[in-house]
Structure formats: C-alpha cells, structure tokens
Design a protein around this nucleic acid. Structure first.
Lengths: 208, 208
DNA sequence: TCCTATATTTGACCGTGGTCATTATTAATC
DNA sequence: GATTAATAATGACCACGGTCAAATATAGGA
C-alpha cells in the first residue's frame, strides 16, 4: 500500500534547496557542485538524486526563483520606451549567465512544468501582452494582432537574441556581442509591432 | 619559431571526424562517446582534445553537415504554402533530436564561427529572405518589412517553437507537443508576415 | 645524414554527475 | 509496545568528459 510521505522528506528537500540557493548566490549557476550541495545540506549524494532527477532540475528551480525576483518588478509597459526597456531587462535576465539560456531552452517546454520556469515565461508573456493590449487600444501599435500572440513573439525574439549573444568569456568583446543582439531584438520587435517602420522605433528610443 | 603543420595532423583529424560521423549515424548525436570515437579512429583520448576544444565542438561540426544535407534541398518558397512547408521542414531538422537544439543555441552565436552552424543558419535565413523578397514584390505579404529581417524573425520563431516542443521521451505524447509547437510557429509567422490575418493562413494551409 | 626545436600523440589520471544494493527510519496495524 | 511493510537515506561504485607531463615523430637547417 502507498503511505503518506514521512515528515523528514520535506525537511531534507528544503535543506538541499537552501544549500543550493546559497551556493548559487556565491558562485553562480555554473559553479554549483552536487558534492558541495550535499555537504552543506549534510546528506549523502544519493539523497540528492532521490529528490531531483538530475542537477539541472534543481538549477531550473533556482533559476525560476531568480528570474521571478528580477522580472516581478517590471511595470506593464504603456509606451514604446517602456516596452523597449522591459525587453532589455528581460533580455539581460535571460542571458546574464550562459547557463541560464541553456536551462530556459531545456525547461521552457512541457519538461519544465512544476519547476516554475514555465510560469516565469508565462508571466513575462502575459506582461507584454497586457501592455500591448493597452497600447493597441490606444492605437500605438499596428492593429489586428492578438496581444497574447504578439507577446509570445517578443519572447521568441528574446531567446533568439540571447542565443545570438552567446560568446565564450575569453574571446572577443562580450558587450559588443550583447549590444549587437540587442539591436537585432529591437529591430525584430519593430517589424512585428510597427511593420514598415523599423527605423522609427530606434529613433524614438534614442531620444529618451 | 612556428613551423608548418605536419602532414599527419590532417589525417588524424579526418580519422576522428570520420569515426564520429559513423557513430552519430548509428546512435544519434546523444549516443556519441569520446572513448568510442578514439577507439574507432585508433588514437588516444588526449589526441581528441588536441584537435577539438570539447566534444560539443565536434558534434556541432557534424550537426552542421547533417543540417546542410537536410536543408539544402529546400526550394526558395514562392507561395504561402511553400513557405509553411519549408518552416515545417526546418523545424523538424532543428528539433528531431533534443541535442540538436542545445547545440544550435550554444553555437549559433559568435562561438560557432568556423564550425558551420553559423553558415547553416545564415543559409536558412537567406532562403526565407529570398522567398519573402519575391513574395513581397508580388504583394503576397505585408509590405514595408526588410526581407532579411523577416527571415531572421522566422528563424527566431523556429527556435522558440522547437524549445516549446522539448519533451522527455518518457512522459506525454511527443507528437502532441510537437504539433502544438508547430501551430504556434505558424500563428507567429502569420502575425509577422500577414498582420491581422492569423487564421487566414491556417485556413489556406489546411486546404492544401 | 644527423641534430634539434617544434609539433603531435599518448594514456594514466582526475573531477563530477549519476546509480543502486544495502541499511536505517517511520507510519500503520495489532 | 512490538511487528511489519513501505519510505527514505547512505556511500561505495561507475561512466564519461576532460587534463597534462612525458614520450614520440617530424620539419628544417647544418
């Protein structure tokens, strides 16, 4: 017969997550070692894998926390400038560590349900969609598109730009690659939201 | 002083690539083991890493070959239906193995120059761009957008859809996830190319 | 042809993610 | 409280990617 989970199960899991959270805060996602996690949580390595299918699942959990904190503060955009600003912030949140993009790609689909990644992405899309709906009502973007779909389009562009910015730490100027990707992101956005006026959006932003 | 590379260098490298190519053909990208490669190529493991920075660089090289073969046959699209068909084929090529998407994301940026991934992606974009330019001239898509930029937008949607389709082999229906992602891809494409007529494109395709 | 500096190869070795048979603990029942 | 069956924790072990000091082979010059 199946029996209700023991009381210590949740405690052990919490200890593991807390230990991992601390380590990630200190070393970044890429610096996390399962050995270090179980040492700090005072469990055996096997226990780790009894609670998480693999290391990346735990990392995805923590990434969702981090992204939620970095993205929750974003206001619903009400102007072209605010929209561009939000795009830049989410872009930064998605690509500040290479590991983040890898995890997002791996866990953005059905695989990630339950880890929080899907919720974060959904919230980002919803934030864009809400802003776009308002702007559409005020005639500030091209009419006729479904705001939710346009929001998903923006997130698609974010992923693409983040991937294009991928760059080993050693070679070439990292900021240059990032800035180039950001320009691409904004031009694509303009093409989707203000068809036929790609350059106008850039001009409007550079004025602010 | 630096001296010209020895004759055997290229041979050894070719043996390694050939061995890896055979293994990938047999087991898929995920099934490749460096031990197996060096065994088949009759070299030591250290030699492998003298020729490639890591395993993924070699895999990216092979993936570029594979994608080139799968994508080279695509005709420049001259109609909505052909465009949709090309999108489906590239989507399939990008997402048929989970490992493919991972490698594409990692090596689509500046990191991937010299491995062929960047060329493949460039060719795909150029293919779409060429088709879109023609369709634009004939008034078949919304006017005013830069075809090259629109092509890049389509590739961005491809990546997003492929990520959304990510699904562990064990849980849920793989085809269902893929079909859902494909619908998303087509709706996004319609929003970009035929703003305000998302459903029309679907209807046109379902008739063919 | 011999010498030597450089290029290339080698394989024992290591770090780290992940497994699994075994042991310890606990919920449920009497 | 004693018994037992399910649940959780353990850590020795393995697989595999990647390293590096030492060994070997070669280009180029005398």
């Amino acid at each position: 017969m199946t029996r209700k989970p023991q009381a210590r199960t949740a405690q052990t899991r919490d200890r593991l997550v807390a230990a991992a959270r601390d380590i990630v805060a200190e070393t970044g996602l890429a610096g996390l070692r399962t050995e270090a996690v179980v040492a700090r949580a005072a469990t055996a390595k096997g226990t780790f894998f009894a609670h998480f299918p693999d290391k990346d699942h735990l990392l995805a959990l923590l990434l969702a926390e981090i992204l939620r904190a970095e993205v929750a503060q974003l206001a619903v955009p009400a102007s072209r400038e605010q929209l561009a600003d939000n795009l830049d912030r989410v872009f930064a949140a998605f690509s500040s560590e290479p590991e983040r993009l890898t995890l997002l790609v791996r866990f953005s689909g059905p695989v990630g349900v339950g880890l929080g990644i899907d919720e974060v992405i959904h919230d980002v899309i919803a934030g864009f969609a809400g802003g776009l709906a308002g702007m559409q009502a005020r005639g500030m973007i091209a009419p006729g598109g479904d705001p939710a779909l346009l929001g998903e389009g923006l997130v698609a562009f974010l992923f693409h730009a983040a991937a294009s910015a991928q760059c080993p730490l050693t070679t070439m100027d990292k900021d240059a690659a990032r800035r180039r990707a950001q320009v691409l992101l904004h031009r694509l956005t303009d093409a989707l939201l203000w068809p036929g006026t790609e350059s106008a959006g850039k001009a409007a932003r550079s004025g602010g």
